[in-house]
């Protein structure tokens, strides 16, 4: 269970990260995790409010304190996880065993009390039917890997991270935000420092002049994005200082 939480704590689970996790935990937990991450949820044993009621009662927390906590952390499952004292020594239960034990109030309280916080928060999502994490690249997405030439538009020095955009008509539309991992990162940041056109807190808007090659494993439609699309496992391949922005890939070609 703790390994599953550690795996999820690494961020959006990629197939590579899942393979590494599966190799650690053996076939039974790997197949349980695979099922969870493909959208098969375990039977919900209680709503978040009920989990919170159970924990508040078990820890003798009066209602006015629960209300004060919810003002600070509005998520009921989170408050339920935080109210229980930390375990003095960790559980060794597997993900599969945890799920099969998770049946009622007594079982939940025993399991939750023995887990450290990150794993307890996952347990609460599984118990309350609010676990929604999925492996990237699985739900209706295009599985065709591709590359594109995108334009650097924003830099966040504290990553350092950069936002890349693609031309759409006369506009530049943000496509994805990636950590700057290229060996030329110091030179890219030095260029950005000299070409900052505006600042929004730590974010620096830079002259849209530098072209980068990105690769991805597929695309997923997402109406909440200006571009209308999420890239699956996007990564930064190369900086092409010799290319001009008119060489960038049009957004429609990626969708």
């Amino acid at each position: 269970m703790i390994r599953f939480a550690t795996f999820l704590a690494q961020g959006t689970p990629t197939p590579e990260a899942f393979a590494a996790y599966a190799a650690q935990v053996g076939t039974q937990d790997a197949s349980t995790a695979q099922a969870l991450l493909s959208g098969q949820r375990p039977k919900r044993i209680a709503a978040p409010q009920t989990l919170l009621d159970w924990v508040a009662e078990a820890t003798h927390t009066p209602p006015f304190l629960v209300d004060a906590c919810l003002k600070v952390a509005p998520d009921k499952a989170e408050v339920a996880a935080l109210l229980l004292p930390l375990p003095t020594d960790g559980t060794r239960l597997t993900l599969t065993a945890t799920l099969s034990d998770l049946t009622d109030r007594a079982a939940y309280l025993q399991l939750a009390s023995a887990l450290p916080l990150p794993a307890r928060q996952i347990l609460n999502r599984l118990a309350s039917g609010t676990f929604r994490t999925k492996l990237t690249g699985q739900p209706e997405s295009s599985q065709s890997p591709g590359t594109c030439l995108a334009i650097l538009t924003l830099i966040d020095p504290s990553g350092p991270e950069a936002t890349f955009a693609l031309p759409h008509g006369n506009a530049l539309v943000p496509l994805t935000r990636l950590k700057l991992t290229l060996p030329e990162t110091p030179a890219i940041l030095a260029w950005a420092k000299a070409h900052t056109t505006d600042r929004f807190g730590p974010l620096r808007q830079v002259t849209p002049a530098q072209v980068f090659e990105l690769a991805y494993d597929g695309t997923t439609p997402n109406t909440r994005r200006k571009s209308g699309v999420d890239l699956v496992s996007p990564r930064l391949i190369a900086w092409h200082p010799s290319l001009t922005p008119d060489r960038a890939t049009p957004l429609d070609a990626v969708k």
């Binding site: 998520d75 504290s158 990162t185 730590p202």
Partner: peptide
């Protein structure tokens, strides 16, 4: 410091915060 030019010289790096407030998901 991370919002200043000083941070631009850091090169490849990872950032983490250390505070009691990190107990909260928000």
């Amino acid at each position: 410091a991370m919002a200043t030019d000083w941070a631009l010289g850091l090169g490849p790096h990872e950032v983490a915060s250390a505070s009691g407030w990190m107990a909260l998901a928000a």
